[in-house]
């Protein structure tokens, strides 16, 4: 059981069988996480650095926990890109870290393509923990793990991705992954926040949220950033909520009960109503636990951990 690629940079072109292997392995680790003793020795002796060039408490904690559960040694490196602008180059920073002899780098960086550059500068296995608006493959895998756990299948599943697609770090990886696994994807959000030419990736666009709710088995609701309002990408929270907000009232108009996901952090009362976020329809907290299990699976498979019971 091994993967075709040495690194996990993104899900564009990533083999379906590998995605399935990761999801299946994540299910195994999910069982481990339900045990009283949640630690396995799979990655004992391996050193992993978490390189965060941008704040992301959730993703970092999820990775750290996954590493600890696998008994790996971890170090954290946080740097704001503003300090990079001041002098030390990206290359210098990462080569310094490479010099410390590590086995894997988990990197979050605001710029698309940064993980690919990293593979040129270091020998370690590189795992992309989000490169700007490009890819965030581990998030997409945890989303797919959550969907498969809920529905038992991905092929033919109808998934709506709602909100700010353009500035999202999770949308593209979700699109690539879901399409590869045979799911159908419809995007729904303000036209100003949907990237041009995105239909060419095999998704549909529908600006009518009610149509999408009627069609979908699950919705992945993205966070809307208030800063976008100021640069006239959407006019007001009121209008956003009325067009694209997920509310109990709106969901109640449809017979079929659909699943609601959110990558967090949520703006309660904006893109998602509190009552929806806390309802049984929402699997948001399950996503968090699956996040740890999926990241354990990825680290385990990429770092050649030995099979354990």
């Amino acid at each position: 059981m091994s993967l075709h690629h040495r690194h996990l940079l993104g899900l564009e072109g990533y083999p379906a069988e590998d995605i399935q292997t990761i999801i299946d392995t994540a299910f195994t680790f999910r069982e481990v996480l339900d045990r009283p003793i949640k630690k396995v020795p799979s990655l004992q002796g391996k050193t992993i650095v978490n390189l965060f060039f941008e704040n992301s408490t959730r993703t970092r904690i999820s990775f750290e926990l996954a590493q600890k559960r696998l008994s790996a040694d971890t170090v954290n490196f946080s740097a704001s890109t503003s300090s990079l602008k001041k002098g030390e180059s990206f290359k210098d920073t990462v080569q310094n870290i490479e010099a410390m002899k590590i086995d894997a780098c988990v990197m979050r960086h605001p710029t698309p393509g940064a993980p690919l550059r990293l593979t040129e500068y270091v020998d370690a296995v590189v795992i992309n923990a989000g490169d700007g608006t490009h890819e965030h493959p581990t998030q997409a895998i945890l989303d797919m793990t959550s969907l498969q756990k809920k529905f038992g299948y991905l092929k033919g599943l109808k998934v709506g991705i709602i909100g700010d697609i353009s500035h999202s770090r999770v949308a593209l990886s979700n699109i690539y992954g879901l399409i590869t696994m045979g799911a159908e994807v419809t995007l729904c959000g303000p036209a100003t926040l949907i990237p041009p030419h995105i239909e060419e990736l095999g998704v549909k666009i529908n600006y009518n949220l009610d149509d999408v709710i009627e069609w979908a088995d699950a919705l992945n609701v993205l966070r809307i950033q208030m800063e976008r309002m100021g640069i006239s990408l959407f006019p007001s929270v009121r209008e956003y909520r009325s067009l694209f907000g997920i509310t109990t009232e709106r969901l109640a108009n449809h017979k079929k009960e659909i699943i609601i996901m959110h990558p967090g952090p949520m703006n309660r009362g904006v893109e998602i109503e509190s009552a929806v976020a806390d309802s049984d329809q929402a699997i948001i907290l399950d996503q968090v636990l699956n996040g740890v299990a999926s990241r354990m699976a990825i680290l385990y498979l990429l770092l050649g951990g030995k099979a354990e019971s």
């Binding site: 608006t133 490009h134 593209l172 060419e200 990736l201």
Partner: peptide, 15 residues
Amino acid sequence: NEGRTSTRLGLPGNP
């Protein structure tokens, strides 16, 4: 250039 490739790469496009 703004197009399929810029969208794929997550880079802001110039139309």
